[in-house]
Structure formats: C-alpha cells, structure tokens
Design a protein around this nucleic acid. Structure first.
Lengths: 220, 220
DNA sequence: CCTTGGAATGAATGGTTATTCATTCCTGAT
DNA sequence: ATCAGGAATGAATAACCATTCATTCCAAGG
C-alpha cells in the first residue's frame, strides 16, 4: 500500500498518498457509504464498527460522525442508497421506452435482477443484513416499504401490459407480480446462503421457468 | 407476572418466585435459547446482549456463559434449533404416511409453511437475522446448508411423486422444488418486511397459484 | 438433621466502541 | 503571498458489554 512518493517530488498532481485531502461533502458521504457496504458484506452488519468503515474508506476515525451525525444515521443512509439503486434499476427497465418489445423488456428485467450488478455478494449481503433487522426496526421497514411499493406497482402494470398483449386468461397481474418478486427475493437468498447448491445459472433458469409458465407466448 | 403465591405457604410446589432454582442442564439450555429467540425478534440480532437474554429468561447474568461457553455459541445453537424445527416440520409432512393423498399432503405443507407456527414474527425475524449474517459467517452458512439440503431433497422427491401421479409433462422436479422453496422464502420476507402490503392470506393465495400452475390436477 | 457437590448468582474486570473536540493544515479568495 | 474558513484528523473520554470467579445456597444422599 506504500505508494511511490519515491525520492524527490513531494507534491505530485496525483490524488493518492497520505496527504490530507479536502473534498466536497457529497463525495465524502458517498465514499463512506461505499465503504460501509463493503464492510457489511465482509464482516456482517452486527460486526461493523465506525473504525472499520473509516479505515476501509482510507480516512480518519472521526470523519463518519462529521458527515453523518451518528452510526445509526450512516447505516440508515446506506440502506436507503442500496434500496434506491436496486429499485431505480428495475423501474428504469420497466418504464423503458428504450426497449419497445415486451418480451425483450422482460428478459432485460431478469438480466438485471439476477445478473452481475445485483447478485454481487456485496449487494446481496447488505440487502439481507437489513432485512434481518427490519423485524425489530420500523425505520428500516419504512425505507424498504417506500421504495418497494413503487417498484411493485410498476411491475404490476408491466405484467398487465403483457397479459393484455398475450391475451392470457385466468391470470391476476397483482398476484403474479407479488409471486415473481418473492421468487426473485428467495433466489437471491439462496445465492447468498447456499451458493453451492444454487448457481446463478440455475437461478436464472428457475425464474425464467416461472415466467414461461405464466406468459408462454412471451418467453422463449 | 407476579403470580399467586398468596399468603402463607412459603415453599409451595410451584416453580415461580425469586428463589434460586436448580434445574437440569438441558432444560436451562432450552430456556436460554427460547429467550434468545424472543430477544432477536424484539431487538434485532445486532442489538442482542447477554444481559438482555439472561434477563429475558429471568435468570442471572453469568448463566448463559455457564451453559454455553460464549455468546457466539449461544447464537449458533439458537440458529441450529430454529433451523431444525422448521425443516423437521416440513419433512414430517412430506414423508408423512399420515396423509396418504398427495393433494392433501401438498395442502398440509402449504399450511405449515405459511400457517401460524412458522410465520410468527418471532421465528421469521430470527430466520432472516441469521440469513443476513450468513454472507459473512461460514458457520451459519454451514448450519443452514446442512438442514436445507435434506429438506430440498425431500421436496424434490415429493414433487416427483406428484408429477408421476399427475402425468405432468415439461416439468422438472428439481427446478420446481427450487422455485417453490425460493417463493416461500420470498413470501416470508415480504410478510416480515412489508406486512402492510402482503397479508398472510394473500401470501397463501400466491403460493397456491404457483402450485396450481404447476400441478393443475392436484390443486383445487 | 447434617453434609456436600455443584448449580446459580452478580459484582468486578478488562477490552471494545461510538462520539467528542482541540488541533492541524488544505484551499480558494483577496 | 497571505489569510480565513472549515474540512479532516486522531487522541481522549465515557459508556457498554462479554466474561470471570468468589460466594451463596439449593437438593439429594447419608
């Protein structure tokens, strides 16, 4: 980790080294949130300390309390960020005028939900760490509920479009959306806890099968 | 909670009061595990302290370290207990010669998985609290994996029976079992985190719908 | 009734951690 | 080049917590 400040040049234009750096507030906050995510993934939510986070961010001990008022605040904002990121991604795809074909859009959604970005252990760990605490912390429940509700509505509307286009009978878009969301959550859980038994490839195939049974004319 | 020791009798046969009570080792262990479950559900895994647990159990501070060597041990044994209980219940039903009819057995399984016993907030909270930490703690992963694998095999075999009896085509029992398990997990998660949006009744209906689409001649 | 093994207690201990704040020293404005 | 504002630092502090163990006292056997 000791980088090359080498011999002569003492103030090179690069941004590394141990010199104190002053950065915009927003940037520091994000830097700390990112570090928090890594720490939760690596050590588990219950083992995360402020020292750990600030050290992971490469900053000094007191800085997290400077930018977030308390540890609780930092954790809350970290959850908010992860939840937002996930749901924004989903909604972007579902509203997406970028992909006019419904079949392709369905595929894109599946790709996003079980693809590289979301199923990185890091993000999944954070996700479920908070879920685990949600039963006891109304604050967490509220954050997740808020973003979740919007995503659920969009998904329901999206499924309704597909049902209409495919003339599917005996299918309720709301129940189907709930089931699909639950299935995806459950698959994420499986990927996190029993990666040996459930590979990413098989998770995708299982989810695809669910959709195929509901929308046979839109999948495959 | 102060019960009727009433007036005179100072050594009644009841087990209450504040008097020091000596009990078998196994009983104390279970008492502490039960208290741990209640504490995790109420305060969240990361907030549980030994004081909290022993006080909840109505015992003295040092007793948890006496019967379990450490806090880590207590938490590990608590997870093992909850995992066992859940999977034993499932397996009992699936192996159940007590219910010969496959349709009825399927219903019984659903009843168990989304019925009173399992979906009590207490048990769900504990379940997901550990899942949240599993990403960072191989010990937890192992405990869950072990019981999970057995239950998954039984479920696959059970589904295979149904597929055979119903002559269902284009259905893979393994993928279906994985999907069903994931769906149930996801529904539990929804019941825990967003109880406002997902009622127990609707969760059951969603799961039932999944099974009906796979085994139309066995459901309804 | 007395004795004794060991279950249970709870005050004390030592280690850990969130938070504070006096000090340092970048950085942009003048 | 100088200066003021405030971002960043990190040592100090106070609170908390798991664990220990000397002491207490229940209960079974004699």
């Amino acid at each position: 980790m000791t980088d090359a400040s080498g011999t002569a040049g003492d103030t090179p234009p690069d941004t590394n080294g141990k010199r104190r750096q002053i950065r915009p507030k927003a940037e520091r906050r994000q830097q700390l949130i990112d570090a928090t995510i890594r720490c939760i993934a690596q050590h588990g939510l219950s083992a995360v300390t402020m020292q750990m986070v600030t050290s992971e961010a490469g900053l000094s001990a007191g800085i997290a309390n400077l930018h977030f008022e308390s540890k609780e605040n930092l954790l809350r904002e970290t959850l908010r960020f992860v939840a937002q990121e996930y749901h924004d991604g989903q909604i972007d795809i579902m509203e997406g005028s970028s992909i006019p074909d419904l079949s392709e859009r369905l595929d894109a959604l599946l790709d996003f939900q079980l693809g590289r970005g979301v199923t990185q252990r890091q993000k999944m760990s954070v996700w479920f760490a908070y879920y685990g605490e949600a039963g006891a912390r109304p604050v967490y429940q509220k954050i997740v509920s808020t973003v979740d509700r919007l995503a659920a509505q969009k998904l329901e509307a999206f499924f309704a479009e597909i049902i209409s286009e495919g003339q599917y009978r005996d299918v309720d878009s709301r129940d189907l959306a709930t089931g699909y969301s639950a299935l995806i959550d459950g698959l994420h859980l499986g990927l996190l806890v029993t990666p040996r038994e459930l590979t990413k490839r098989r998770a995708r195939s299982v989810a695809r099968e669910f959709l195929r049974r509901a929308f046979p004319r839109h999948i495959r």
